[in-house]
Design a binder for these strands. Structure first.
Lengths: 203, 203
DNA sequence: GTACGATTCAATCGGTCAATCGATTTGCTT
DNA sequence: AAGCAAATCGATTGACCGATTGAATCGTAC
């Protein structure tokens, strides 16, 4: 890991990191390529050399994190050894912990959502929905979850409870993100979801 | 309602309407004052005459709808004559219907959230939280809601289930917004919330 | 009907933006 | 060490943006 004067891979990463931080904080339109370059410690023309256009840079920034998110979720969904509600509770925890660990991704996701479907993201998202719905449908057939509601809704419900919390907790509960002493607000809220929502979707 | 050549109030409204549509669709930084002016059918300088700066225009656009939202919610929360879970169910319906009727406000709210707390909005939002929590706490004391969870969480939970649905239903359930034939996906989801979440927060 | 403030528009300003270009430096191959 | 492609930078470009200005037009109070 010697520090080389010319290190295209390091430059690329530095630009991606700087862009992610700025895009998440301010949004695509409010961030200039010069600001990204400055934060990354490279010249502005580097951005166009490595990513062609600003729009394509945003695409790379988003896809990098989304791929990581996808991999984590897929791994959890495919984890064997658990059945029914245990599995659902585990998925909720994994989903929750990923967001807790990646606060910047929460903002990126929110901005991407408002901007409409991104290239290459829709099929991955659909794949997660398909697989998640399948797991829930199986739990319904096994009698672990109530069958009088659509499995998609059960999935969407828990996605909502987790995603919205991280999008809005600072608004709803000021300083919730700062209080680190366990049990933190995050932990309390996770307990709340597991206690109430899980009960609600039980037969 | 004669059409006058000089009609400052109509101009103001036209600018606000055009700005709301464009800001909701593309976001603050991606919309130029010229684009807003063109959509509103006035000259670009009108924007600065009526709203001073572009940033202040955004503030007015947001506050106009947020005030409407606040009034609706406050009215629902203060509506007497119902007790306990009936009241909670009614609130959920009102909240849900407001979002359904104002799809553009959902996007505005999302963008405002990502942009941080706006001037004059925080106290109103806090007021709704306070009042909502109070209603829930009363229901808990009456034994209509379980008392082993914080009332704030019960409130946040249902806010999440509703708000996130309208933010993401197009992603989760393609074309959910278009299908109008009752029972629409919206209605089905509302039923789902009322069936499951309400059960989950019952003692 | 006229005087005056309010409203509107066209023209334009300085500044910033994304993108391009030319020149220079670096690392690698032979 | 020579040659070459890749990588980097500084300068530049043309377009656009938000904001300002000044003149023209309208409504209205008197």
């Amino acid at each position: 890991m010697t520090k080389r004067r010319y290190d295209p891979e390091a430059s690329r990463e530095a630009i991606l990191d700087a862009a992610e931080k700025l895009f998440a904080a301010r949004g695509f339109g409010e961030v200039s390529t010069s600001a990204i370059a400055e934060a990354a410690g490279v010249s502005q023309s580097q951005i166009h050399y490595h990513f062609d256009t600003k729009r394509k840079l945003w695409g790379q920034v988003f896809q990098r994190r989304f791929a990581e998110y996808f991999a984590t979720q897929k791994q959890t969904l495919e984890a064997a050894g658990l059945e029914g509600k245990e599995r659902l509770a585990l998925s909720i925890r994994a989903y929750f912990e990923f967001f807790r660990a990646n606060p910047q991704f929460v903002k990126l996701l929110g901005r991407a959502q408002l901007a409409g479907v991104q290239k290459g993201e829709e099929p991955l998202s659909a794949e997660l929905m398909r697989q998640g719905t399948e797991v829930i449908a199986l739990a319904q057939q096994a009698g672990d979850l109530r069958s009088d509601v659509a499995p998609q809704f059960i999935l969407i419900g828990f996605l909502s409870l987790v995603a919205h919390w991280f999008q809005c907790r600072d608004r709803y509960v000021p300083e919730a993100g700062l209080k680190a002493s366990p049990p933190s607000y995050d932990d309390q809220y996770l307990d709340f979801i597991l206690k109430t929502y899980l009960k609600g979707v039980t037969p």
